[in-house]
Design a protein around this nucleic acid. Structure first.
Lengths: 366, 366
DNA sequence: ATCGGTTACTGTACCGATACAGACGACAGA
DNA sequence: TCTGTCGTCTGTATCGGTACAGTAACCGAT
């Protein structure tokens, strides 16, 4: 008695056909008569055959039906962050329509010898907003998987989808400069340092997006000869926004305008300011980034930089599929560099500089 | 010249060791000398070897490092729905800590012959709030994967994690009854019918959760001899909540209290009521379900039934891991049935029935 | 010198499918 | 009757690893 698992062969023996025919019954219905196929399927059902073993099929066929998405260290970020969720939702929708499943990959090494990016069977992968030098990316590349980079420094040979973050940030900074602000704070994340005020950051952001936005902000501020106060946090949520706000507002000369890396951070800043009795935008102007749903429902509504994350997700999914097609057919299309717009959206959280009675503020004569 | 892909053998030949030793260099560092391991790894690097092929490894080892989660048809729901996202985030966090990756599986058949639940290599799977008779569940079961059911009708032999939804719904209904309401509306989803008013629903909900909540609501209403007006929608978001509210408020005798399947639906109901000039809770009491973040930030804050989705996610992940351990060691632990509490949380969206002067129109005297 | 115990490595036997090139009978056309 | 073609089904050769048992060398203890 075979106590072994039931496999193609088991079914084949039972029906009295070759293993190959059973395989075809499942994967290539056109290769055999409908009648025989029915018989085979029935026998398989009887025997409790679960269909071709996915692992074996993956090995033989070279295809798994799953595409990975590499995320910054914590997986829950994918669901926690409103903007990431919107983006991933769009991807999942596009990909799901092609029958592909989406596998969330953590780029942080968890156990020393388990590396999702190296070990999980995949047909292709998206790299989303990871540190450029992440070892996980190296593994994916070495595997020669069709890849698409999103919110990532473009690399030759790999299609990338980016937002024009630099222009967006520049517009945000220019906006507050135009409103007359001169003491400007920047609240961003992942500039390497633990957390707190940092010196004029050159290129120290660990992420491409953080770097681009910083570049954009500084571009406009430099042009106006303004030296901003920069706070870097570890994460870009509300809590860190609050923390950063405390730091900035405790300064002897607190800023009158704050540029934030995300809407969530901006929310934390606004709330903190309000709790301290300040008025937004009268005492403090705040600009967010992303135009997440939160931005519109805030009170005051948040001036922010809009990016179309849904479009970004759709573009990424589409490009990933063409990359997969290219790999399958062996054709050599060129890698694209897609760049989507980022537009300043002025709402109610920013306003013109109001000269306060306070002593130590820079007394400027408009 | 071997134009072929570089494999273990390629590396082995180059270094002059057996294929097995190269395999060990990657997967069992303790099986060879550090010196040799270094040499092998270096050679692998040189040759551009990408590490053991995941598909082959999965076949040989019987393990992939990925666990699936089966979702109701649309994948984007995982990210779109605030409650689902919270739940999945907790799961991802727990699982990620064990080095496992999470694969989102769509339970709807997309292409005729692509069935994620049947074809994607997986070590185990969670079934989350799917229709009980979904073919995808059958496939997962036939594959003999370690399984955990969440928000799903428990089945013998499979560990399940559920919320005491029936009790929660009963408490919600009892609450409005206690407030004196007699004309009560129910806004739920997925009761099979297209969308609209439905007759007293016996068991027609396609989902376990929908059924349980309906049972709970009816239990309390029956006891009070109240016959509710029931609206069923396709989805459980704000939009459908609005649609349902229109239906209910257009009734000759509109309800004075509405019980909703989700907070998002409740939000839609509240907004619609307010837009129509009604006051919540004076003219209309509304109860939600889930206690999502939305419930607390609504205005008026939403009376709802609280379930701890994070705990649910953690429990599910933990149980899934023990199920995997059981499968690996072959030990035969018993399947558990976990049931978490659901508690009524009274906030500002419900109030005592106010007797109105007007017959059919809400004539209010401010 | 013998022996038990490590450490370091190797050989063989699978894991469970798919690809691709036939084989074979039936049937239409010459 | 012979031949070409089509529709079905089969055999063999991979796909690229890991498990496990075994061997050889080495080392300290008796």
């Amino acid at each position: 008695m075979s106590d072994r698992r039931v496999t193609l062969q088991t079914v084949a023996d039972h029906v009295g056909v070759s293993r190959m025919t059973v395989s075809n019954a499942f994967s290539r219905p056109d290769q055999l008569s409908a009648e025989l196929r029915e018989r085979i399927l029935a026998a398989a059902e009887d025997l409790g055959y679960a269909g071709p073993d996915p692992a074996a099929r993956a090995l033989a066929k070279g295809t798994t039906g799953a595409v990975g998405i590499l995320l910054t260290d914590s997986l829950e970020y994918a669901f926690t962050d409103e903007v990431a969720a919107l983006f991933l939702g769009a991807i999942a929708q596009e990909l799901g329509a092609s029958g592909l499943s989406l596998t969330l990959l953590s780029s942080s090494v968890t156990t020393p010898d388990v590396l999702p990016a190296r070990d999980v069977p995949l047909d292709a992968a998206l790299v989303y907003s990871c540190e450029d030098d992440s070892p996980a990316i190296d593994w994916l590349r070495r595997r020669h998987l069709p890849l698409v980079y999103v919110d990532q420094t473009p690399v030759s040979g790999i299609t990338s989808v980016n937002i024009d973050d630099r222009a967006g940030a520049r517009a945000a900074a220019q906006h507050v400069v135009d409103l007359g602000h001169r003491r400007i704070g920047i609240v961003t994340s992942n500039f390497g340092v633990p957390a707190g005020l940092i010196d004029r950051p050159a290129d120290r952001a660990t992420g491409h997006v953080g770097r681009q936005r910083m570049l954009g902000w500084l571009e406009a501020l430099d042009a106006a000869a303004i030296d901003p106060v920069v706070v870097s946090e570890q994460l870009s949520g509300e809590a860190t926004g609050r923390h950063a706000a405390e730091l900035l507002l405790d300064l002897p000369e607190p800023p009158t305008a704050v540029l934030c890396f995300s809407d969530a951070m901006a929310y934390g800043v606004v709330e903190t300011a309000i709790e301290r009795g300040l008025s937004v935008p009268d005492d403090l102007s705040v600009v967010g980034y992303d135009d997440s749903p939160l931005a519109a429902r805030m009170r005051p509504s948040l001036t922010t930089v809009r990016q179309d994350v849904i479009a970004k997700g759709r573009a990424a999914a589409t490009e990933l599929r063409t990359a997969m097609d290219r790999a399958r057919t062996g054709s050599a299309g060129r890698a694209k560099r897609i760049r989507l717009a980022a537009d300043l959206l002025v709402r109610d959280s920013t306003g013109p500089l109001r000269h306060r009675a306070a002593v130590d503020g820079p007394a400027r004569t408009r």
